[in-house]
């Protein structure tokens, strides 16, 4: 692996671990880790996750449409990614219903302040020509899938004594994203080395992490 990829991965790992520390301090995750999580917390969490997951495949598609001909391989990767994930929000709806919630409620759920900011930011970045900085956003979001989702899913299931079919999104994501991280390294190598791109990827990761944490901070059941 090239030094340029290793340097960016190192900076992204630092951003991710600081992000994880910030999540740990949010009221919602504190309730979860301290065993005080309630069903209403989980349902509020699912509503916000749905916003963000639904948008995910859309901004990825938009980003792909802004990638030029000299980076077709990266464009293909993003398109495949978008296809893989664009129905995942349905899983969140099914989880919500399995907890006893009504499907209309989760579908009518509104973005909180953090989700609004995160969504606006993603579409804004994806609308730029060759929006390679979004690889940094993917690192944060994929990292959540492969590192945090299962951990949260197990804790939610145990605390609320839920059946598997109410925690499928969190548990399922954890199983699938390990290979996404491997694909990620390949994608980085498609745009690096390039000093400006490297800086933009790290900066985009920082902003995405902050806005994602804001989304979690704003969840109050």
């Amino acid at each position: 692996m090239s030094d340029a990829v290793a340097d960016v991965l190192r900076k992204l790992t630092v951003v991710f671990t600081a992000f994880e520390g910030r999540l740990e301090q949010t009221p919602l995750i504190r309730k979860l880790t301290r065993g005080r999580f309630e069903l209403a917390d989980y349902q509020a969490f699912l509503i916000q996750l749905r916003q963000q997951v639904k948008d995910g495949a859309l901004w990825m598609s938009r980003a792909a449409s802004n990638i030029d001909e000299s980076h077709l391989e990266l464009r293909s990767s993003l398109m495949r990614h978008a296809v893989t994930e664009h129905r995942d929000f349905r899983l969140l709806e099914a989880d919500y219903v399995a907890t006893g919630g009504a499907v209309e409620t989760i579908r009518a759920g509104e973005k909180n302040v953090g989700s609004e900011a995160l969504s606006a930011w993603m579409f804004h970045e994806a609308s730029k020509p060759n929006p390679f900085g979004l690889l940094g956003a993917m690192w944060i979001i994929e990292g959540l899938g492969s590192i945090k989702a299962q951990e949260w899913g197990r804790k939610v299931k145990e605390t609320l004594v839920l059946a598997d079919d109410a925690v499928r999104f969190l548990l399922y994501h954890g199983e699938n994203d390990a290979q996404h991280i491997e694909e990620f390294k390949t994608m980085l190598a498609m745009v690096l080395p390039d000093e400006r791109t490297a800086r933009r990827i790290v900066r985009t990761a920082e902003v995405t992490a902050r806005l994602y944490a804001l989304q979690i901070e704003e969840i109050v059941a």
Binding site: D7, R10, K11, V14, T33, K155
Partner: peptide, 20 residues
């Protein structure tokens, strides 16, 4: 032990920042 896994990742983050 559960928390330890998260703490280990945080140590790695601090270390990599020193490297960076």
């Amino acid at each position: 032990f559960e928390l330890l896994k998260r703490v280990i990742r945080a140590w790695i983050g601090v270390y990599l920042q020193k490297v960076d």
